[in-house]
Amino acid sequence: MLRFIIRRLLVILPMVLLVITIAYALIKLAPGNFYATERGLPEAVERNIRQKYGLDKSWYVQYGKTMWNIMRGDFGFSRKYQDQTVNEILWQAAPVSATLGLTAYLLALTLGLTFGTLAALRQNSALDYGSMAAAMLGISLPNFVLGPLLVLVFALTLFWLPPARWEWWVKIGSGGIPNPRFLLMPAVTLAALYTAYIARLTRSGMLEVLRKDYIRTARAKGLSERQVVIRHALRGGILPVVSFTGPALAFIVAGTVVVERVFAIPGLGNYFINAALNRDAPLLLGITAFVAILVLVFNLLVDIAYAFIDPRIRY
């Protein structure tokens, strides 16, 4: 197991570098510059800017320097937000996105597992059909439609919740505890799709397990239906969900990009889009690297968790 973890950790580093390199290559190959304006710049000014940011050097020097700095954890200054380093922006924005993502994640897991299991246990009941229809809707309704609709109903019509803002309730460092009134709608919007996926995965996983011979054995032992489900079925039934939680994080990251925009939340997603549109290379690379590391490490954790749940897996 330890060897597996070390091996995987060793793979993560080149993968992060690969992702950064792809992003870097895209930035370099793309037309346009971060300093370009509508009117164009005087040649002297442009030359000065290029010199200042080292853009006059050959590409491999630039690449080498960038990668070296990134590996030391230094992403440099943002091109757009001139007085802030990328690390400062990450430090500011990451807790916001993390709070949002984590809330959505837990919400999706709780609701998805609950409804998925119930649907499987009461197969073909109204509860089953209801949950699955809701899940299908969750999969079919884009979050940028769901978000505004929630705002329309709960903020603009019923006036229950404030429309679009972010506020720390208790501030700790650059993060803290968010105000649940502001968090609720974005979290629900973000969670909808994953709740739906997890519910469907749980249901099908449980149905498959409940058909297994060892469940029949457990019943033949005289265990009650509850004991059968909790002790024997649940473990195998949630395996597909466990393996989904890895990719789910990557999806959630993408989801936050939209949700943050819908609800005007100052998270990483918003910075990321703006960085891409402004060709703010350091910030773009910084966020990409941060997320890539996060996702890859999380995937490793999921694999480890999997091995703990399923004793047949040996790494």
Binding site: G32, A254, F272, A276, V295
Partner: peptide
């Protein structure tokens, strides 16, 4: 397996934001 773990959407966003 390795590719599965990459957050693609980010790269696609970068790609589409930068190019025509």
């Amino acid at each position: 397996d390795v590719l599965f773990a990459i957050p693609y959407m980010m790269l696609v966003i970068v790609l589409l934001a930068l190019f025509e």
